[in-house]
């Protein structure tokens, strides 16, 4: 009954809207696919869009008992509070600098490692290296920070032992601003490079070995094979990862920085997330941190849309 009624409305309307009619036809043709999509879309509706009203907290003086809707409007007060503070822009700059470093150095690391592993012919060796490199992923930054501070210590750390063995003066890496960003970048590579390799290795296992054979027939050396066969096979994944990485440009790794920084390096190490955390410690700063979060994510979303558009034009790959 319901169905026929709707169908008749559809036919009535289709006279006026031939395009809509065509679309409905498309829906019918791909009914199975659309049905498959239902559970996922319901999930997004229920667990993402339903609580989305929480974003309004950024524009409200949030009071716990009154709820989001009942709290009084604050307009752009919290945005102004953030933007008018010199500290905010300082940490904003720090975040961007750090993210750019990570984009340039941390992002390609697992790709290079995956390609190197791909060259290894001894399967056992390959597996052992893979397993060992992925281990640090499971160690939290709290613990890792302690290990790193010890590792770099001027008095007992192995790095400085080596420096001293060669007659150099020990360097207090953790206590000097000029080293701190490098330490953050290198230690994040250290922790995540093996773990990050997995997705590329999975993509590499998709490469048709016939392509290599063909390349060899064409007289391509190994480097050339990597360039003409291996890399193109994983470009798809690389592009997606890159777009997402660009979206994270304002997201810094709170746990890493919070556990590793110290007063001597605050001026380069304080980033948005540690800043918000400290602000939040004073009192329940829900409105303020939501406002900063919203600001961050609007930029991130815009960047992702931009990168995606470029990527679609250049490489034919993209999120949508």
């Amino acid at each position: 009954m319901q169905q026929t009624k709707r169908a008749s409305i559809a036919t009535q309307k289709s006279i006026a809207h031939p395009k809509l009619h065509a679309q409905l036809r498309q829906y019918k043709v791909h009914k199975a696919l659309l049905l498959m999509l239902i559970p996922g879309m319901l999930y997004y509706l229920l667990f993402h869009y339903k609580p989305m009203y929480g974003l309004l907290i950024a524009f409200k003086d949030y009071r716990l008992l009154d709820g989001v809707m009942g709290s009084p409007w604050a307009g752009f007060k919290y945005f102004e509070q953030a933007f008018s503070s010199a500290e905010f822009w300082r940490v904003f700059k720090n975040t961007i600098i750090l993210s750019c470093y990570k984009l340039i150095f941390t992002f390609p690391a697992p790709i290079i490692l995956a390609l190197m592993l791909n060259e290894v012919r001894c399967l056992k060796f390959k597996k052992v290296v893979q397993t060992l490199t992925y281990l640090p992923h499971f160690i939290s930054w709290v613990v890792l920070a302690g290990v790193i501070i010890n590792f770099l210590s001027p008095s007992v750390g192995p790095i400085n032992m080596i420096i001293r063995a060669f007659g150099g003066d020990p360097i207090y890496f953790m206590g000097e601003k000029k080293y701190f960003r490098a330490i953050l970048v290198i230690s994040s590579i250290w922790k995540e490079v093996g773990w990050g390799t997995i997705v590329y290795l999975a993509a590499l296992s998709n490469v048709d070995t016939q392509l290599y054979e063909a390349a060899v027939l064409d007289g391509a050396g190994r480097l050339r094979q990597t360039w003409t066969v291996t890399l193109p096979a994983i470009t798809n994944v690389i592009v997606i990862m890159l777009i997402m990485q660009v979206g994270k440009i304002l997201n810094d790794d709170f746990d890493q920085i919070y556990n590793m920084y110290n007063p001597a390096v605050y001026s380069v190490a304080e980033v948005l997330s540690t800043y918000i955390y400290k602000m939040g410690l004073e009192q329940a700063q829900y409105s303020f941190s939501t406002a900063v979060g919203l600001f961050k994510n609007v930029i991130a979303f815009a960047l992702v849309i931009m990168t995606n558009t470029i990527s679609n034009k250049v490489s034919d790959y993209g999120l949508w």
Partner: peptide, 19 residues
């Protein structure tokens, strides 16, 4: 004004005293 200034001020004290 704690929310606006306190963390900045405390941090600056620590940073500069150490420096």
């Amino acid at each position: 004004s704690d929310a606006t200034y306190k963390s900045v001020v405390e941090q600056s004290i620590q940073e500069n005293y150490y420096a």
